[in-house]
Every structure is written in C-alpha cells, then in structure tokens.
Simulated assay, not measured.
Amino acid sequence: MAERTGPAGPGTPAIRLTSLRKEFAGTPPVVAVDDVDLDVRAGEFFSMLGPSGSGKTTVLRMIAGFEEPTSGRIELAGADVTKRQPFDRDVNTVFQDYALFPHMSVAENVEYGLLVKKVSRAERRTRVAEALEQVRLGDHGKRKPSQLSGGQRQRVALARALVNRPTVLLLDEPLGALDLKLREQMQVELKGIQRDVGITFLFVTHDQEEALTLSDRVAVFHAGRIEQVGTAREVYESPASAFVAGFVGTSNLLAGDAARAVIGREGSFAIRPEKLLIAPAGDTQRGDGLMGAEAVLEEVVYGGPITRYVVALDAGARLTALEQNTGASHAAANLRRGERVRIQWNPEHVIDVPESASR
C-alpha cells in the first residue's frame, strides 16, 4: 500500500520538481527532459501542454514512478519520492486507454484497487459508492463496461483512481479517444469533479484549447524544457516566447522588415487573430487611435460562428484575422479573395515576444 505523503505544511506544493532530467540511451544520449523545475500547488488543476516529443508525458511518467530520472528530485507533498516504486507513491494515473476489466461490473472495476490493498469489505462498498457518485455514475454500478458510452467508461476509470484517495491524480491525455462533442462535455465534467473532490490534478495534453479550458495554470513544454508557466489568460494574452505565441492558439508573428514597417520598431511581435479588424481598403471608420496596414485578401474561410480571413500585407507578412458572424451587416461581410483590404488593431494588443524563455 502506498505510503501517504501528507499532511504537508501550509504552502507546501503537491508536486515539486527540482532540476529534473531524463536522458535515454543513444549516441549521443537523447535528452527528453532538460533540467525542469516546477511547483504544482495543492488542490489545483494543472496542465502540462506541448507537442509530441516535448517531454510532458516523460515528466508525468517520472512523477508516477514508471520512469527513473537521470538526475534531479521529485517531491510529493514535501516528501522525496524520487527513488520510490510506483506502488509506494500516493498518486494514481488515468490513461487514454481506460483498461477496464470487461468481465467485471462497474462497481467491481472501481473496487479492484481497494481489494488488492485488502481494505475491509464494508469500507470498500462505502468508498466505491462515494467514488461513483463523484463521477455521476451512482446508479451504474451493476453494469458492465460494454454497456457504457465512451464518456461513461472514462468516468469509471476516473472513479477507479479517485477511490484510492490519492494526493495527486495524474491524467495522461485521458480524453484523446473521445469524439469532439463528447470530449467537450467531458472537459466540463472533469473540471467539476476536480473542484468537488479537491484533489490535485496533473493533466497532460497537446490540445491547446483543452488546456486553456480546464486549467488553473498551464506549463508549456518545448524540446524538454518549460517555456512558460501561468494562468490560461497569462499564457494566451502574454506569451513568454515566440514558441508559446505560435503554439497556444493561433498567433500572427511579425519580425524583421515586416515588424519595422508595420509596428514601427525593431523586435518580434504577436497579434491574436481575434484582435484584428478587417475592412475594404481605405476604410478607416472602425475606430480612432488604431494602427493599420494595407493588404491583399488571400483567403476567406467560413467557419459557422466565425469567418477566418488570411491576408498578405504589403510589408511582406501574412496575417489571419477572425471575425464573429453576428448576423449584423459590417464592412467585412462581402469581402472577396483578391480584394485590397485594410487591417487594423489597437496598439495595446501588440505583444512583445522574446525569442525564447526556456527555463
């Protein structure tokens, strides 16, 4: 049975990673995680976001004990668990593959871990009932996994982890196998469950929208390092590097000659597509104090609630603008490919972007 790591003192992080490094054998060795430092607060929903190969899943596997660090330290609620075996850490992991036992009922699947730990029968029943209620499946205990939807099977896997009452719940892209609508529904439910149970959730995903929707804070990974840690708003509105600006959502990056011509100064800059206004060339009636540039409209993509416009600036850069389809008549509604247009934006929405902020 895993040794409890708490209670920790006030302000003690649920997870603390210090100079965490992982190299895999090769010539030269492959550095998957490059000296990562990170604190995850007790009770928060924290996401590790990044593309494939960025190191986020390797970090999660080291926290779980499935991979041994090359160097560095892992603490859970203040206790050093770097050398402990997986079963000796107060964490549970939910994977994309639910791995439910098909011959067992829902309740038996949830109960299995408690049975292995030799928890008394009466306590098992109480805790299983509580866990199923937490995931809104209180009346599904007698069903088999084959009788459940994908979202319900995901919640059974979640209940199976929660029933052990871990200090930290690790989630390795658990929604990746669901279709879009079910995935969006489960995002809302997952956040609600985390808020209700109060356990620290560490969530791994490559889906930017998912990370922004769910998280109290996000760590953006790139090439084995953390580029930025912050709230969803901080990461989106104030990216700490060109990589973060380009990876988290859609961003228009301006540098070099284009930046000098359009922004009027040296450096690298980003403007989010929804901050841009588009109108026929010569139309300056959309607001005083706006910056602007002339361009040619290259593409118009209707996307239901929004329309995406891709323009080529005379200064040499390509930008994307998004406008809501409100149904109201506006200047951009009848624009066509090949037309001359004017792009405008508020100077406050121009983001100064450092080339790199890895740490």
Rank of each mutant, 00 (worst) to 15 (best):
S19M: 07
E111P: 00
A157R: 03
E67L: 13
M48S: 10
M1S: 07
T231Y: 00
V229L: 00
A223M: 04
F87C: 06
E294V: 00
D139R: 12
T18V: 15
V248F: 01
Y236F: 12
V91L: 03
F203L: 11
R340T: 10
V188I: 15
K118W: 02
F203N: 10
G267K: 03
R89G: 04
M186L: 13
R183N: 02
V31N: 06
V156Y: 09
I278C: 07
K181G: 09
E237R: 03
T284M: 02
R127A: 10
I193L: 10
Y302W: 09
T320K: 10
V188N: 02
V156I: 13
E133L: 12
G26P: 11
M48R: 04
K83Y: 00
L254C: 09
G11I: 11
L170G: 09
E68P: 00
E23G: 03
E323Y: 05
T126H: 04
D283G: 02
V110K: 06
V341Y: 07
R318S: 01
S47W: 01
D283A: 02
V311W: 12
I74Y: 03
K275V: 07
A279F: 03
D283V: 08
D39W: 02
V204E: 01
E184I: 15
G72S: 12
R136H: 15
E67R: 04
A242P: 05
A99R: 13
M291S: 13
L319T: 06
A293E: 14
A107S: 14
E67M: 02
G138I: 02
I343N: 06
E130P: 00
P13I: 11
T5W: 06
P305W: 00
D283T: 09
R89S: 13
F46L: 11
R233I: 07
V40M: 11
G304V: 04
V119M: 10
Q85N: 11
R265P: 04
A177G: 12
P347K: 13
E67S: 02
T205Y: 08
P280C: 14
A219Y: 01
V106M: 07
G256I: 05
S19L: 00
G65S: 11
T126D: 09
P7Q: 08
Q85H: 14
E123P: 03
S19K: 10
F243C: 01
S52Q: 03
D257V: 12
K181E: 11
V91H: 08
K83L: 06
A77I: 03
E355S: 09
K22D: 07
G43I: 14
L253Y: 06
G43D: 07
L319R: 00
R340W: 13
A159C: 11
P354G: 07
G192N: 11
P166G: 09
V218I: 15
A223K: 14
Y302L: 06
K191E: 01
L17Q: 09
E133S: 14
Y98S: 04
P280T: 14
G224R: 00
E234D: 14
A328Y: 05
D90S: 13
Q324E: 12
A295M: 05
G256W: 04
Q154A: 08
Q228Y: 00
E184L: 15
R16L: 12
V30Y: 13
D35A: 15
D172L: 08
Q344E: 15
L335M: 03
L276F: 05
S105M: 04
D257K: 14
S238K: 15
S215I: 08
T27I: 08
P280A: 15
D196K: 10
L38W: 00
G113K: 02
R233S: 11
P280S: 14
E209H: 01
